[in-house]
Simulated scan of single mutants.
Amino acid sequence: MATSKKKANVSTDMKKVKQLLKQIPEDRQPIAQGIYNELIFIQNTLIELRQQVEEEGATAMFQQGKQEFLREHPALKAYNTTIQRFSLLYKQLVELLPDTDEQQETDELMEFIKE
């Protein structure tokens, strides 16, 4: 079993996200850091999958016995699944951020309207 010592490539966008982590309350920092680390891994995986699809195309020939047919490229299928997980984790990270003043004002307005 080969182990990869490849260093994770951190995109400019993820460096901006890292700055947002400072706004997350201290008690939620371990959770936020874990999500952030997964996001970096997933983003790098998405880049590799996208490159593979761009090079090989969105479809691939598949052979099963004597039958051969065109199907969705496995890398595209993996990309689509992985991007959903990325979006879900990103949303979870954003939900760890404290409420903004704008959201608090909206909530206060809604409470007033309900009365």
Results as ranks from 00 to 15, higher is better:
49 L>K: 10
34 G>Q: 06
112 F>Q: 15
20 L>W: 14
8 A>R: 10
28 R>L: 08
103 Q>H: 03
29 Q>P: 04
71 R>P: 01
47 I>Y: 05
112 F>L: 13
67 Q>Y: 14
89 L>V: 14
55 E>G: 01
78 A>D: 13
38 E>L: 00
80 N>R: 15
57 G>S: 08
6 K>M: 01
45 T>M: 01
53 V>R: 15
87 S>F: 05
3 T>F: 12
72 E>R: 15
110 M>A: 13
3 T>W: 11
104 Q>D: 10
4 S>Q: 10
6 K>S: 04
65 G>R: 15
63 Q>I: 08
35 I>H: 06
50 R>F: 05
99 D>P: 03
53 V>I: 13
16 K>Y: 01
94 V>F: 09
112 F>D: 15
51 Q>W: 11
11 S>P: 04
37 N>P: 00
50 R>S: 08
85 R>M: 03
13 D>H: 09
9 N>G: 00
19 Q>W: 04
17 V>C: 02
76 L>D: 11
77 K>G: 02
91 K>H: 12
44 N>W: 06
48 E>V: 06
102 E>Q: 13
16 K>V: 05
37 N>Y: 01
17 V>I: 13
89 L>Q: 15
108 E>V: 02
62 F>E: 15
35 I>F: 03
115 E>H: 14
32 A>F: 08
19 Q>A: 09
56 E>C: 00
85 R>D: 07
77 K>D: 08
70 L>I: 15
34 G>Y: 05
87 S>K: 15
15 K>M: 07
11 S>A: 03
86 F>R: 14
88 L>P: 00
10 V>I: 13
81 T>M: 14
50 R>E: 09
93 L>I: 09
38 E>K: 14
24 I>Y: 08
84 Q>F: 00
99 D>F: 02
12 T>P: 01
33 Q>W: 02
73 H>V: 08
33 Q>K: 10
